[in-house]
């Protein structure tokens, strides 16, 4: 594997909160353009892994390479530049509730020093990002005026408005009904397949991972279509977390064939 092409790499990463380990010597790497699906029970370290990848949490041990740079010892200032190339969707969206939808989506364009877009461009790109998630009519509204699914879509718009090459999604479908969650997955895949972004997705639902691994977004029809050998979906690897440890890493086929009951639980319960 070409080292330059690795977008994100964890090497023996241990994270502790007040002495309690949240990640234990986790190592994995994500080559450019590939998809990773992170699964595991609540509190198993999936969210912590995403936040560590962004440098929001500093590990006590190990190294994190983001776009080839070791980030665990970078200052917050230096991290801002790297973070501008990463989109992050937080659990529950984490929209700023005192700002309108327009201001929320414009936030990274205005505040990220390395982007710092001029006002006309901000307005255009915000509109573009909102029409990407089919919510261009909500500009003046506040997050509290939207439904849960709509808020999640706005959060996706905010995460991808800067067109980052790497996007991290933390439980984008948690708490949504199956139909809405398929819509959210379709948006994630639309962004992945149109812009060829590297994607990390934390999820509790096996169907989401299944969708990401076996379908792709078809630009002509605007729908999800099954991947075919000549037009495959990006390589998708499943990462299983348990109590802060990485206990499984493999393809969907390997996951379904796994004899580990912990891994099996996630396949069967949702399958």
């Amino acid at each position: 594997m070409n080292g330059d092409e690795t977008i994100l790499r964890f090497e023996g990463v241990t994270v502790e909160f007040a002495g309690v380990p949240a990640l234990k010597r986790v190592s994995f790497s994500v080559p450019k353009g590939e998809t990773r699906v992170l699964f595991g029970e609540a509190g198993s370290g999936k969210t912590v892994a995403l936040k560590t990848a962004l440098g929001l949490i500093r590990p006590v041990e190990g190294e994190v390479y983001l776009f080839g740079r070791e980030i665990t010892r970078l200052s917050e200032e230096e991290l801002f530049d790297l973070r501008s190339q990463v989109g992050m969707l937080f659990q529950e969206g984490a929209l700023f509730d005192s700002l309108t939808i327009e201001e929320n989506v414009a936030y990274p364009l205005i505040n990220q020093k390395s982007i710092h877009a001029p006002p006309e461009e901000v307005a255009r790109r915000v509109r573009e990002a909102l029409s990407f998630v089919e919510l261009e009519h909500t500009l003046e509204k506040y997050p509290s005026e939207l439904s849960g699914g709509m808020r999640r879509r706005v959060a996706i718009a905010r995460a991808v408005v800067t067109e980052p090459p790497l996007v991290l999604y933390d439980s984008p479908t948690a708490g949504l009904d199956p139909i809405t969650s398929t819509t959210i997955c379709a948006l994630i895949m639309k962004n992945r397949d149109l812009r060829h972004t590297t994607t990390l997705l934390v999820t509790h639902r096996y169907q989401n991972g299944n969708l990401l691994a076996n379908y792709r977004y078809d630009e002509a029809s605007g729908k999800l279509v099954p991947a075919t050998p000549d037009r495959p979906a990006p390589r998708t690897i499943f990462l299983g977390f348990r109590g802060g440890e990485l206990v499984f890493e493999g393809t969907q086929t390997e996951m379904e064939a796994s004899s580990d009951p912990y891994v099996g639980k996630f396949v069967k319960h949702n399958g």
């Binding site: 936040k51 937080f90 984490a94 936030y107």
Partner: peptide, 17 residues
Amino acid sequence: SMKVTEQIDAMRALGTD
């Protein structure tokens, strides 16, 4: 409230201290 709804983390992720 911003802290518990991850808005503080979102701020850092989106380029503000």
